[in-house]
Amino acid sequence: MSPLIKIEEPGLHTTIQDTGRYGMQQYGVVPSGPMDPFAFRIANLLAGNAPDEAAIEITMVGPSVRFLENCVIAITGANLSPTVDGRKVPVWGSLYVKKGQELQFGKPKHGVRAYLAIAGGIQTQKVLHSRATYTKAELGGLKGQPLETGDELPGRTLPDTELSKRKGKLLSESLRPYYQSHHMVRIIPDEQESYFTKEALQTFYTHSFKVTPQSDRMGYRLQGQQIAHKQEAEILSEAVAFGSIQVPADGAPIILMADRQTTGGYPKIGTIITHDLWKVAQLMPGHTLSFQRSSVEEGHLWHEYETNLLKKLSVSIQQK
C-alpha cells in the first residue's frame, strides 16, 4: 500500500465513503455511506473495483487532486466540469492518469454530488468494519473528518498492464440519470400518516416542496405548504431509514439522508423507495421535489431492476 493521491485543495465537503457501516444501528451507529448509492456503485464498476471499495464523495465544489502514481480513475454523478491538467475529461467514464497529473473541478453543471473512484480502491484504515466517513462521531475516512489540503490517500499501485485494461470505459448515455431542478420521488406511506390531517396528506402528495439551504448529508429540510398534525407531533423514539420523511411540530418535512441519526421521535409520513434516493441526493438548495404514493412491491421491483442492471454492467465491463 502506498499513497496514490494527494489533496491540493479540499473542495467544499469531500469525504471518503464506502457502502456504509452496517450492522450497528442498534447501538446508535449510523451507516453513513454515499448519498447517491447508484452513482457510487457505477464509479467503482467503471474503475474495475469490487462494489464495496471506498471512493471519494465530492459536494458542489470539487477538490484539486494530485496523482502520486499512475492510476485509473472513474468520475460519476454530478457534472462538476472535471479537468486533468486543464483538459476536459468525461463524467461517467474511466481514464488513465499519470503520476504528477492534477485533477480539478470547475463549474457545477448538473447535480450536486460527484464520485471519484480509483482503480484498486482507497485503502484507508477501516473503523468498525468500514471506511465511510461520519464526521459527527469522527469515524472512518481520515481522522473522521472531510479531506483537507495535504492529505494523502493510500491505495493499491497497479501495473500499467492492469491499468490499461481498466481505462476508457464509458457508461452508455441511455443509462445515465438526468439531474433536473425538479424531481418526483415515490413514497411508501408509513402507518404514522395517521398522525396527519386528511388535508395535510393531500397537500403533501399534490404540492411541490423546496430544498432549503439547511440540507446536508444528515437530512434535507423542505419548505412549502405546512403539513399539519391532527394533535400529537411526537412519537416514542424508534428506528428510521435512509429516505424516511419525518415532520416535526412546525409542519416542515425533513428527509433523512446518509448521516441521519439512527432513531427519531417525530411522526413519519413515509419513506422514499431506495431506487429514487439519487434524485434527492442530487438536488441543490432551491430545487424542488414532489411526492407520489407508491408501494413496497414497487420499491422491490425497482431494487431488483437496479441490481440486475449493475450485474449486467459488471459483466460487460469485464468483457470489453
Binding site: 446508535g28 451507529v29 462521531a137 469515524l139 441519526q261 439512527t262
Partner: peptide
C-alpha cells in the same frame, strides 16, 4: 433503547 449517537442509552 440506544440511539441519537453511537453508544447513547435512552
Amino acid at each position: 433503547m440506544m440511539g441519537f449517537a453511537p453508544g447513547f442509552p435512552y
